[in-house]
Simulated assay, not measured.
Amino acid sequence: MGVYNLHERVIAAKESEVGALIDTLSSGEDDRLWPHHLWEEMELDRPLGVGAAGGHGPVRYTVAAYVPGTWVRFTFTGPGGFRGFHEYTALPVDAEHTVLRHTIAMNLSGLSRITWPLAIRAMHDAVLEDSLDRAELACTGTLARPARWSPYVRFLRGLERLVTRPAGAREEHHPSPAGD
């Protein structure tokens, strides 16, 4: 099963400004592109560059190519069944506008043929729109049309919180029959 997934936004900023956001990926609090305040952080085992390995949540990848200020491509190493890449690219439209594009091109096999359409795609689409919001806000100081999570994404995020909540937080208090 093949997947081609594209998210892009025209940002009223120079290519150099938008491209500089790509360079901050996986830099913790200094990351101005990945929406780490809402989603699991993108983490790499070293600074962004060819060969750096890491991921976000269950999605794992290695930096396969990197042109600072312009483009980064990550090759998937997990989950099992993801074969392909995802990338960010800054493409100039004119002197004052740039397209920030995120692309996934991959083939799915095994369980991923079920998990991608059932849950991962919706979550991916939401995180990418949040990422594009961060880019637009960082470059322009405003958001023309902020991304909104669908009811299905809000439902999946609720399930995620239930599954990842510490065990003690899931326990409910059941009063004893004596009323104490």
Rank of each mutant, 00 (worst) to 15 (best):
M1A: 09
M1R: 09
V3S: 02
L6M: 07
E17I: 00
E17L: 02
V18T: 00
V18G: 01
G19C: 04
L25Y: 00
D30C: 12
D30F: 14
L33K: 11
H37I: 02
H37Q: 07
L38D: 05
E41A: 15
E43W: 12
G49I: 02
V50H: 10
G51T: 06
A52I: 08
R60P: 06
A65T: 08
V67A: 10
W71S: 09
V72R: 03
R73N: 05
T75K: 01
F76E: 07
G78L: 07
P79T: 00
P79C: 01
G80E: 15
R83K: 15
G84Y: 04
F85R: 05
Y88N: 02
L91Q: 09
V93C: 00
A95N: 09
T98N: 04
T98D: 01
V99P: 00
V99D: 00
H102Q: 05
A105P: 05
N107G: 09
L108S: 02
L111Q: 15
R113G: 04
P117Y: 06
A119H: 03
D125M: 08
V127M: 10
L128P: 04
L128W: 10
S131V: 13
D133V: 13
D133L: 12
R134E: 11
E136Y: 13
C139G: 14
L143T: 00
P146V: 11
R148Q: 15
S150Q: 08
R154K: 10
R154G: 08
L156E: 06
R157D: 07
E160D: 14
R161V: 03
L162P: 05
V163H: 01
V163N: 04
P166C: 13
G168A: 11
E171L: 09
E171K: 04
E172P: 13
P175W: 01
S176M: 02
S176V: 06
S176E: 02
A178S: 14
G179F: 13
D180G: 10
